[in-house]
Every structure is written in C-alpha cells, then in structure tokens.
C-alpha cells in the first residue's frame, strides 16, 4: 500500500525495520479514490474553548487515510505519548462529543462526513463501561435490544458471542459486572461491540488497565476475533510492543499539539504475543520505534524552547 502522496512529485521511499517498514511520508488521499476510503482525515484540527484563555489545541493538521482493502479490514494502531491526541482522533471517528465536530478540516468514514455516533463504529474504552445493572448476557445483547431484535434471537446470538470471547455461557452469562475481573469485563465489552458487526472497531487503550499476562491473552483473542470479522480496527495504545504485535499499520504521533508524524507497515503476527515478543526481528522494530519517538520528543522540546 504505497499510494504516492498527491502533494509531492517524487515518489516516497521507505525503509525496512525488522518486521516493519517505515514509510517516507504518512499516506495521503489520492483524488479521486477508486473506492471510498475507510477513514480519511484531511487537515483536521481540534481546539477546545477557542478564543478563550484556556483554549487548548489537542491535534493540529492531522492528515491520513486508511484505504479500503477488498475482503479484509486493516488493524491500525495509533501510538504516542499521553496527551498527544490519540483519543481525540478515535472519538472524532466515533463522532462523540465534545471532540466531535472537528474545529477545522474534515473526517470522512467510507466517503461520508461523520455526523454523529452510530453502531457501525463500535468502540471499546479503557475504563470499564459494562452496564452495572445488566447481566453479562444483557450487556452483550444491549445493542440488539436497542435495534428491537426479538429477545430469544438476541439472547441466542449473545450466548454465541459469550463463547466467542472465551467466557462460559453456563457460568458467566447471568453474572453481573461487579462479579467479573478486568479481563472478563473487557471480553464482555468486545463481545458487545462485535455482535453488531461494525465495519470499524475503535479501541481506546482497552487493555491499559490489565496485568501483563491478561493483556497478552487479550491481544491473542483480539487478533483471532478480528481475523474472523473482517472489520477495520483502530487501536490506541502507548505500548510499542502492543502496537507492533497487533498492527498492520502503525501511526506514530507527537505531542504539542498532536500530529501524525510517521507511518509504518508491519507484518501480521504469526504467533501468540508471548512468543512474538522473543522474535529478534519483532524486537528490532520495537527498538526502532522507541528511538523514533525519543527523537520526535527531542525535536518537540527544541521547538518548545
């Protein structure tokens, strides 16, 4: 996917690093596109409280495009330090306030501007957002209930998804969220989203609060589920290992205000997270990105002074 930039005359060169490949420039939209892009950000900026003393620019002039691949969704990881506007990008795609709408620029999803949230863009949050008053089954069936699907049908499908995310139908379906561990809650959150067959899945550091072992198990689960559902995933994280393991494509952001600085293409993971972490080529990519981020931060600090 080395679509040449529409703004530069010379074709970009790229650089191989381990299992990844750093693109010379962040991919831009070609016009006209052969088919609508999954997501396209064009000169997107978001400023909170513009014109006031406490005005704050979260992201400035963010440009990127995720092309639509036939019969395959891409796994896009957004990597960057805290406060670089990763979540802002995700919530702009989701159409959630107050990030939505963007101050300037346009956010397009499948060729149409984002007008508000919808079930076609499911989202999993870092904070546990299971509905406390609903059982596991009731939580997973929530979206279908809102659509008005008959109770026996939605419960049957919900039980299917309880199995898909590795929970036990007999034991867990009538449990309430407070009886679940963090990992189990996130499994419920993933099932609740995937049951609606979203074309885009937005994940905002979903495993950030989990212990390392659970986190790796969840990464493996997520890869398995994602290959089955053919959706595009946007996964925000500040763990480089997580981004390289999960991502087909990694965006690296810098702070103050947030920008997408670099884009990498990464080979898909061919083994579980625990084993992947020992592969030298995998580590090479991780170290490379670590240096890259340090370099970007040094540059940003120089600009600040």
């Amino acid at each position: 996917m080395t679509t040449p930039s529409s703004t530069t005359a010379t074709p970009p060169t790229s650089q191989d690093v381990g299992i990844g490949r750093l693109l010379e420039e962040v991919q831009q939209a070609v016009s006209p596109p052969t088919r609508p892009h999954v997501v396209e950000f064009r000169n997107v900026s978001k400023t909170y409280n513009p014109g006031q003393a406490n005005s704050f620019t979260a992201i400035r002039d963010v440009n990127f495009v995720v092309a639509d691949l036939p019969n395959k969704g891409e796994f896009v990881c957004v990597l960057g330090p805290s406060g670089c506007g990763k979540s802002t990008i995700l919530r702009l795609i989701a159409g959630l306030e107050p990030q939505h709408p963007a101050t300037t620029g346009t956010v397009h999803v499948f060729g149409k501007p984002v007008e508000g949230p919808g079930a076609d863009r499911g989202m999993v949050f870092q904070d546990y957002t299971s509905f406390d008053h609903r059982s596991v089954l009731g939580n997973i069936a929530f979206g279908l209930e809102c659509q008005g699907v008959a109770r026996n049908e939605r419960n049957e499908l919900a039980r299917h998804w309880i199995e898909q995310v590795g929970l036990d139908v007999a034991k867990d379906s009538e449990k309430y969220p407070h009886e679940l561990s963090g990992g189990m809650r996130q499994r419920v959150a993933i099932a609740r989203t995937l049951i609606l067959q979203p074309r885009i899945i937005l994940m905002d550091e979903p495993f950030g609060a989990l212990d390392p072992q659970t986190r790796m198990n969840m990464q493996d689960l997520l890869i398995r589920l994602w290959r089955a559902v053919e959706a595009t995933v946007f996964f925000v994280t500040h763990s480089i290992e997580e981004a390289v393991f999960l991502g087909d494509r990694v965006y690296i952001m810098s702070t103050g205000p947030g920008r997408v600085e670099k884009e990498l293409e990464v080979e898909p993971a061919d083994r579980p997270a625990l084993e992947m972490a020992r592969v030298p080529r995998f580590q090479e990519t991780v170290y490379y990105i670590r240096d890259l981020i340090a370099q970007l931060e040094a540059q940003a600090n120089k600009h600040a002074k």
Binding site: L96, G118, M123, T129, F142, G143, T193
Partner: peptide, 11 residues
C-alpha cells in the same frame, strides 16, 4: 462514558 458507550452501540 456510559453515554458514549451506548451511543457507539447504536442507542
């Protein structure tokens, strides 16, 4: 965050 979640689930 519960409102956000419900919105992204199509409520």
């Amino acid at each position: 965050r519960y409102i956000d979640t419900a919105f992204t689930l199509g409520a």
